[in-house]
């Protein structure tokens, strides 16, 4: 309860600060939207020239894309500080202050700053889902309606866990840019049916960096692709395991924190 009220406080503070520069926020929403459109461009252009991808229709791929984008949007809202962690917190030594407050350090890192403009992605993602669902004439059952938000939460947790682990690397290796960007740019690869890949990539995207569990697998039930059902039901488990791992690695990192930035 206390955490929730602090979270709300953090968010409203941050919003207030951002709204002081309205033009800036507007540009941020615009650039964020351009990035979303561009990341969608490959699919759009491709299907301009071909009609299906190994038996998957354009609308189905849009559905997967929309789901992934919704999760990614929430993740992006929360991950602002992860992206800049190595520089702002470790090298500039701000992490000292974080450790001096009676709140878990990860809570503070995730909820102290927000990439508000990424709420645009959540919205765009939902629109894409709606459009694809309508085109595909999907008729979700009651259970599916309840499962959907759960899958979104799992997707967000999986994205967060992966990048928390990558961020923790900054505790041991000082680096301003870090290794997040190259992995971040691999997120779109999870948006394709895993069966188009060879065994190595399937394994990588499912079990090493489980992007497929945050985009492709969670959509398979809604798209009536029964052959992936076991994977669909594994999604919550993968989310729980990766979340636990992320927390363990992070705590381990905090113990090795050297506080050299001054």
């Amino acid at each position: 309860m206390r955490h929730l009220s602090i979270l709300i406080h953090y968010f409203s503070q941050y919003l207030k600060a951002r709204l002081e520069y309205k033009g800036d926020l507007l540009i941020a929403v615009f650039t964020s939207f351009s990035a979303t459109v561009a990341s969608f461009g490959f699919l759009y252009i491709l299907f301009h020239r071909v009609s299906s991808l190994q038996g998957w229709k354009f609308e189905e791929l849009i559905f997967i894309y929309g789901f992934s984008l919704t999760c990614l949007g929430f993740f992006n809202v929360l991950s602002l500080n992860l992206y800049e962690f190595g520089e702002r917190y470790i090298m500039e030594g701000r992490f000292d202050q974080v450790l001096l407050r009676p709140l878990h350090s990860l809570f503070q890192i995730l909820f102290e700053a927000f990439r508000i403009e990424s709420l645009q992605e959540v919205l765009t993602g939902l629109v894409a889902l709606g459009y694809a669902g309508w085109k595909l004439r999907l008729q979700p059952t009651v259970i599916e309606v309840f499962l959907f938000p759960l899958m979104v939460v799992c997707g967000v947790v999986i994205y967060l866990s992966i990048f928390i682990i990558l961020t923790s690397v900054s505790f041991w290796f000082e680096d301003r840019i870090g290794i997040i960007p190259p992995v971040y740019n691999m997120i779109p690869f999870g948006r394709y049916p895993t069966t188009i890949y060879n065994v190595f990539l399937q394994f990588l995207l499912s079990w090493i960096i489980p992007f497929a569990f945050a985009s492709f697998y969670p959509t398979t039930l809604f798209l009536d692709r029964r052959e992936f059902q076991p994977y669909f039901y594994l999604v919550p488990l993968v989310a729980a395991v990766s979340g636990t791992m992320a927390l363990l690695v992070w705590n381990r990192g905090v113990k090795s924190y050297q506080s050299t930035g001054n």
Binding site: T31, S32, A35, S39
Partner: peptide, 13 residues
């Protein structure tokens, strides 16, 4: 950062 990210995807495409 947002601009850099948008540029990244736009140039990729």
């Amino acid at each position: 950062l947002g601009l850099i990210r948008a540029k990244y995807f736009l140039i990729e495409l």
